[in-house]
Amino acid sequence: MSKTLITFTLNEQPTKIEVEPNLLLVDMLRDRLGLTGTKIGCGEGDCGACTVLLDGKTVNSCLILAVQADGHNVLTVEGLGTYDKLHPLQEAFIAEGAVQCGFCTPGMLLSAKSLLDENPQPTRQEIAKHISGNLCRCTGYAKIINAIEKVAHGQ
């Protein structure tokens, strides 16, 4: 199968890579670029484990072809913060105990970032609605919502 050269911004870095036309964005990120923070869950767009931001909007990277990133901005959890400089959402998730097994955490963080970029002071109900596409089997969501609310209200 012939490959296509795509050029895009990945975690604020210009990126070029040749991809097959049927390669999924999640597979390119994990297998070709080594960004394993983006998880593969259901593979059907139902669980949100593979959530990344494409031009600031949440997308399920298991449903997007890598070629669709051409000319766009992609943000993964690796671009959100680093070990020595955590994003406020990462700090709040840690402080509130909003991470347990951690499988849903990257998608939750990026969904939360998308919400706060769009609506810096959402209500608790708006937070719950916005993260509803991200499934968590460990926390029961309360701690996750508390963490997002903490950042939104500057606590």
Rank of each mutant, 00 (worst) to 15 (best):
M1K: 11
K3G: 00
K3V: 07
L5K: 14
I6Y: 05
T7E: 15
T9M: 08
E12K: 07
Q13S: 15
Q13T: 15
P14N: 11
T15I: 13
T15E: 09
V19L: 07
V19D: 06
E20Q: 06
E20M: 01
P21D: 15
N22I: 02
L23N: 05
L23D: 13
L23F: 01
L23S: 14
V26R: 08
V26F: 04
M28P: 04
M28V: 05
L29W: 10
R30Q: 09
R32Y: 12
L33Y: 09
G34Q: 11
G37H: 00
G37Y: 00
K39A: 07
I40E: 00
G41S: 12
C42A: 13
C42M: 11
G43R: 01
G45E: 08
G45Y: 09
G45F: 10
D46M: 01
C47M: 06
C47Q: 09
L53F: 08
L53Q: 10
L54W: 08
D55I: 00
D55Q: 03
G56V: 12
T58C: 10
T58R: 15
V59W: 06
N60M: 06
C62T: 06
V67I: 15
V67N: 06
Q68P: 11
Q68L: 11
A69R: 06
G71N: 05
H72Y: 00
V74M: 00
L75Y: 03
T76C: 01
E78F: 09
G79H: 06
L80D: 04
G81K: 09
G81L: 10
G81P: 05
Y83W: 12
K85I: 03
L86G: 02
P88E: 08
Q90F: 02
E91W: 00
E91N: 13
F93Q: 04
I94W: 12
A95P: 01
E96S: 13
G97M: 08
A98T: 03
A98M: 07
C101G: 06
G102P: 06
C104I: 09
T105S: 04
P106W: 06
P106F: 07
P106Y: 07
G107I: 04
G107C: 02
M108P: 00
L109E: 03
L109V: 04
L110Y: 10
L110H: 09
S111L: 03
A112M: 12
A112Q: 05
A112C: 08
K113Y: 14
L116W: 15
D117Q: 15
E118P: 00
P120N: 08
Q121C: 04
Q121G: 02
R124S: 12
E126A: 14
E126G: 02
K129H: 13
K129V: 11
H130A: 13
S132G: 07
N134H: 14
L135E: 08
C136T: 10
R137M: 08
R137C: 05
C138Y: 03
T139K: 03
T139S: 03
A142D: 10
I144A: 02
I144S: 00
A147L: 08
A147M: 01
I148F: 13
E149P: 00
K150G: 07
K150T: 11
V151R: 07
V151L: 02
V151A: 01
A152H: 11
G154C: 09
Q155N: 14
